[in-house]
């Protein structure tokens, strides 16, 4: 039997002084294979042309459509309504500036984080485009790609206890990026450099190991393992540095 779905959607325009955040209800008959992308598009086309949300690829690769789906951060485009109860509450992703309704500014957040963490490959030498490329171990290349698969959707930040308390916390997204460059033999940086970027309470030592990030990552990245490994490496580096500073060696 066809279900009738009730969508409670947060409506708010932060640029309008008269706007008060509220939940607005929209009702749709469920169709087979309906995703939240299909449902929200129908709501906009048939019921209310003014609802804000962000979809770009609608194929779960661009990271635009993360939102709170019945309280849990996730990608709306690949969420089938069949996996949800008939009452569906959609809220914007917390931890990011609200643009309107379900649309948040993850782009700005990610750019600021990348700039702060120097989250790009640091190339040691100029590249000769005409010569054979530098060889790379095939297993290492695949391992780097594993960590490169982050789509900057922001789910890990929304699910993070520390990020709720520390506005400058880099989140699992920041840590997985540096873990990725640390693993990459082409990156010229060493653990001393990474410690300078990540070795404080806004970095790897701010993580309380609640690991909400691991639970919600839509790409199933090994965040738990990577953060643990990074923290171990940064702690070792920090201790070595402290020892050297105090002259008592460790």
């Amino acid at each position: 039997m066809t279900r009738i779905l009730d969508f409670d959607i947060l409506r708010h325009n932060p640029r309008d002084a008269a706007s008060v955040p509220r939940l607005q209800r929209y009702r749709l008959a469920e169709t087979s294979g309906m995703t939240l992308f299909i449902a929200l598009t129908r709501i906009r086309e048939e019921l209310d042309p003014g609802v804000h949300f962000d979809f770009v690829c609608r194929a779960a690769v661009c990271g635009s459509c993360a939102m709170l789906i019945n309280g849990r951060p996730g990608l709306a485009c690949r969420t089938l309504t069949a996996t949800l109860p008939a009452h569906i509450r959609l809220l914007p992703l917390p931890g990011f500036a609200l643009i309107a309704d379900l649309s948040v500014d993850t782009g700005r957040w990610m750019r600021v984080m990348s700039e702060r963490l120097h989250a790009w490959l640091h190339v040691a030498t100029a590249v000769d485009l005409d010569a054979l490329e530098t060889r790379m171990d095939p297993d290492r290349a695949e391992a780097v790609y594993e960590l490169d698969r982050c789509i900057e959707c922001g789910c890990c930040v929304a699910a993070c206890g520390t990020a709720q308390m520390r506005p400058d916390f880099v989140g699992a997204v920041g840590m997985i990026k540096l873990a990725r460059f640390r693993l990459d033999p082409r990156d010229a940086r060493d653990d001393g450099d990474f410690f300078d970027l990540l070795g404080d309470d806004d970095g790897v030592f701010g993580c309380m190991s609640l690991l909400g990030c691991q639970d919600v990552c839509p790409k199933s990245l090994s965040l738990q393992t990577q953060i643990a490994h990074l923290r171990w490496a940064m702690a070792r580096r920090g201790l070595a540095k402290a020892g050297a500073d105090h002259g008592d060696g460790i």
Binding site: E133, R135, M136, P138, A141, D184, R186, D187
Partner: peptide, 8 residues
């Protein structure tokens, strides 16, 4: 050289 982890 800029970081793409091409399959090898």
């Amino acid at each position: 050289a800029w970081g793409v982890p091409w399959n090898r």
